[in-house]
Design a protein around this nucleic acid. Structure first.
Lengths: 201, 201
DNA sequence: CCTACCGATCGGTAGG
DNA sequence: CCTACCGATCGGTAGG
């Protein structure tokens, strides 16, 4: 029925598979993601799906990478144009809240879910999730440092501490929304983030 | 080889199975928990294991209940004797940090993991996890309210907001420890909780 | 990209 | 509490 495709067509198919994989994994987890189910969703054979990746682990890695791209586009880029320091930090928080508000992933924050799922394992998936999360915390801390240097935050502010707190609040908001279906968690997160960024947020 | 046991022996076996199930689920997740693996760990047959519960779902529910008991014993009870209000709140936070410090569950906070795993599903397991989490947040909020009434926290303090923030910080600490193997997360959490409880913590 | 197949494991049951 | 078994599904491969 479906003959071999051109390289361009194959790349498009691969992209479509990864997109679906991200959606499924955000609700079912990266292990709950199965090749058989993905094949059914894509109306392909299992061999057709796995042929693009080789192993399930490489499919999982591709899904994490794709989720990271979405994260960058939805949370970082909307704030990238703001002035470095406190203004950009506030823009990031706004984009972050908005990202939760718009349910960018059908199953909530992909990275939080992947972190919880893989935090006790070993291997490349865990390593990628950890380094991605670490990179995000460093990005936040760098922005806090800039804000301190600019005199926008108190001189004794600990950038890594603020980054930790902002990220924890985001995880808390994700839980309120997903586990309790409580959208008020967004307003709670906004207030909590504001307290961490000088109170006049 | 192993004949039928007395009711007391059967209850002991069941307790031992649930204990092991909690350990496995804290690292592998409640779905990653399989009857076959549990049977091998217990040196029993699969039928012997599942006979105590009927279905995997009821085994999962038993594991969540058992985890809740551990939570109560490790985090709540050490603080229950403290004076209601800010003192008890601080005692709870100390016990909470200590619970992370001592790695009470081999795979980190059971409830955080269960929340991430089931927050997009439906059914009794999700409902039990959600109501347990809700109960914990209410317990925290009640204590904050008492502290406000006693004049130990500012009158305009929002108890539910403080409960949300304390819980979010705990999730952040859990991530630092499990995903990054960074024990400094405990000190970060201590400082962050202190800021939420009046700064002079 | 397909069909056809592999061994392993899943949750669960029958019957003792 | 066991043995023996069920159908379903898992990740993955061979060969085209």
């Amino acid at each position: 029925m479906s003959p071999r495709r051109s390289a361009a067509e194959a790349a498009g198919t691969r992209t479509a598979i990864v997109e679906r994989a991200v959606e499924v994994a955000s609700t079912q987890g990266l292990e709950g993601l199965t090749i058989g189910r993905l094949a059914a969703d894509m109306r392909m054979s299992k061999a057709g799906v796995i042929g693009h990746f080789g192993t399930k682990e490489r499919l999982q890695l591709a899904a994490v990478q794709a989720a990271l791209d979405i994260y960058r586009r939805e949370v970082w880029e909307p704030a990238a144009g703001a002035q470095p320091g406190l203004q950009r930090l506030r823009a990031v928080c706004d984009a972050w809240i908005s990202y939760f508000e718009r349910d960018v992933f059908p199953g909530g924050c992909f990275l939080t879910a992947a972190s919880c799922e893989f935090d006790d394992r070993e291997g490349p998936v865990r390593d990628l999730v950890a380094s991605t999360m670490r990179g995000w915390l460093k990005t936040l801390a760098r922005e806090v440092r800039t804000a301190v240097e600019r005199g926008e935050l108190p001189a004794d502010t600990d950038p890594a501490q603020v980054a930790f707190e902002l990220n924890a609040i985001a995880m808390g908001a994700n839980q309120q929304i997903r586990l309790f279906h409580d959208r008020d968690g967004l307003e709670r997160a906004r207030r909590a983030m504001g307290r961490g960024l000088g109170g006049d947020y």
